[in-house]
Amino acid sequence: MTKQDAITITGVSTIGEKKLVGFRVLASNIEEFQQDIPKASLELIRRKNEIHNLVEPVKLIGAFKAGETSEEDDGYWSCLEVTDFEQIPEGMVTLTVPEQQYAVLQFKGHASEIYGTYTHLHQWIQENGYTRTPSNWTLEIYSKWSADEDSVELCDPIA
């Protein structure tokens, strides 16, 4: 599969509020994030049975703000969606992402290639007359997550 075959722009979608439980990853550079996010995701999958009120236990959701952010919002959240926050497992955090309009790109491939894929999505946003809102939450919704290949919807917030 070529990189171009692995990328499909699916258009614009409004995604409702998401209540997330999982791990927050803090790092000082992209290389650290690329090492630490998979570790946090594997730990989340290992401990998912500790999380109450799961919506879809196989859909891992990553969340981050691409633009300047407060210390409180800094980092990358590797999470699972819940219907309600209840008995949060030790060491995990909660995050509520409000309803937002997104440009969505479907990606299949290795996680290390995701970062570069955003260029295609940002170009599509600009060409189609939308404006990115990097101060809002970006979502990465994984329908398949493994060490070898991911299937993920990259959801970049737009106005």
Rank of each mutant, 00 (worst) to 15 (best):
T69V: 06
P134T: 07
S70W: 03
F23T: 00
T69Y: 02
V152K: 04
T131S: 15
C79T: 15
V21T: 00
W124N: 12
Q34A: 13
A63E: 03
R46H: 08
A66L: 14
V25C: 00
E43Y: 00
F33W: 06
V152D: 03
T119R: 14
F33H: 09
N53Q: 08
P38E: 09
L60S: 04
A159I: 14
P57G: 08
V93K: 05
I114S: 07
H122E: 10
S13P: 04
E99Q: 15
F85R: 08
Q100R: 14
K144V: 07
E68W: 06
L95D: 09
E17W: 04
I51N: 01
K18S: 12
A63Y: 01
D74S: 13
Q100Y: 10
I51P: 00
W145Y: 10
D84P: 04
S151W: 08
E140C: 10
I51K: 00
L42Q: 10
D74V: 11
L26S: 07
A111H: 10
V55H: 07
D73N: 15
H122Q: 13
Q101E: 15
H122F: 12
V82P: 00
S13D: 10
V104K: 09
P98L: 08
L95W: 05
N29H: 10
P134K: 07
V93Y: 00
I141L: 12
W145V: 10
S112M: 10
I30C: 06
E32H: 04
A63K: 02
S70V: 08
E127A: 11
K144Y: 04
L20V: 09
K18T: 05
E56F: 05
Y76M: 04
D73W: 12
E72G: 05
L95E: 07
N53Y: 06
N128G: 09
V152N: 04
G75F: 01
T14M: 13
Y118N: 14
G22M: 00
W124A: 10
F23N: 00
Y142R: 03
E86F: 01
